[in-house]
Design a binder for these strands. Structure first.
Lengths: 148, 148
DNA sequence: TTATATTATTAGGTTTGCCTAACTTTTGGA
DNA sequence: TCCAAAAGTTAGGCAAACCTAATAATATAA
């Protein structure tokens, strides 16, 4: 059984992974800036994540994910990337908006729906001969409609 | 400028519209059942909605939306229906799951993304000659993958 | 090394959104 | 009509998630 956490805590956990993947050591202030909150909120969140066994954080010391935390963070970040890709490649959203909307809904979609989106993306990529006819028709259509 | 309300309050407002559209008079207990909360939460929410000028509710009396409230409720419900349709017609989700996921994310998507989804749906409906090639290919593909 | 700037933490407070328990009002059947 | 059941309301409490102000620890630079 994987641990359940709130959408807000998901954001904190994910941000730690992202900072690490950029090759940096996660600091309270970096997490705060990334999530757009103040430092005390980070401290509080870390203590909750620690209670759930996803993170280890010692006073004035390093912030580390447990293996359980890392696994969960990767799963969350995977969802995020999938949604972003769907928004970009299927709906033709620009990078920034795709990122923003992915952020906002990643906590709420069922696994099944995410699977469908993945299938959709895969389908497009696996059937390049079919793609141009419709997806590019669609995307050039929306270029005109949606201000460009 | 339209009034901003929280996701939770959006649910309450929307539920009032839905109950009315079904031809019923909205009652506290009906709203409570629809949103899966207890009656006191409804009372509290109604007083917030009233403060925002979206609803009128007199003690032990009728629950009515103002014209502003009705307008907002319709907009929210429109989003809900759009998302549900997208999930069903594009991703091929079953009705129940489409409904559930629409519920969960309807508060968080940007207008732009919703517009794209609408365009996508319209595109499908306006180009029936192109549709079979890809959307039905996709949908029969996922029939196999996703348990059917 | 010591003073200062930066970073981290604690304490305490706010808002939102939910709850239960107790109470009030309304409704509907005997 | 009257009283019990149903519906609605109030009071008070709790958790999540944020904040500011004050304090503590650490890092840096003179």
């Amino acid at each position: 059984m994987t641990v359940k956490i709130t959408p807000a805590l998901e954001d904190y956990l994910e941000s730690i992974l992202i900072i690490q993947e950029r090759g940096n050591v996660p600091r309270v202030k970096d997490i705060a800036r990334m999530i757009n909150v103040k430092a005390p909120s980070v401290i509080e969140a870390l203590s909750h994540l620690q209670k759930k066994g996803l993170v280890v954080h010692e006073r004035y010391g390093y912030i580390e994910m447990t293996s359980k935390g890392l696994k969960k963070a990767k799963k969350l970040y995977g969802r995020h990337l999938l949604l972003k890709k769907f928004f970009q490649d299927v709906l033709g959203l620009d990078k920034k908006l795709a990122e923003e909307d992915a952020c906002r809904i990643e906590h709420y979609l069922s696994q099944e729906t995410l699977n469908r989106m993945l299938s959709f993306i895969n389908f497009i990529e696996d059937h390049p001969e079919e793609k141009p006819d419709w997806l590019s028709d669609f995307q050039s259509l929306i270029e005109g409609n949606h201000k460009g």
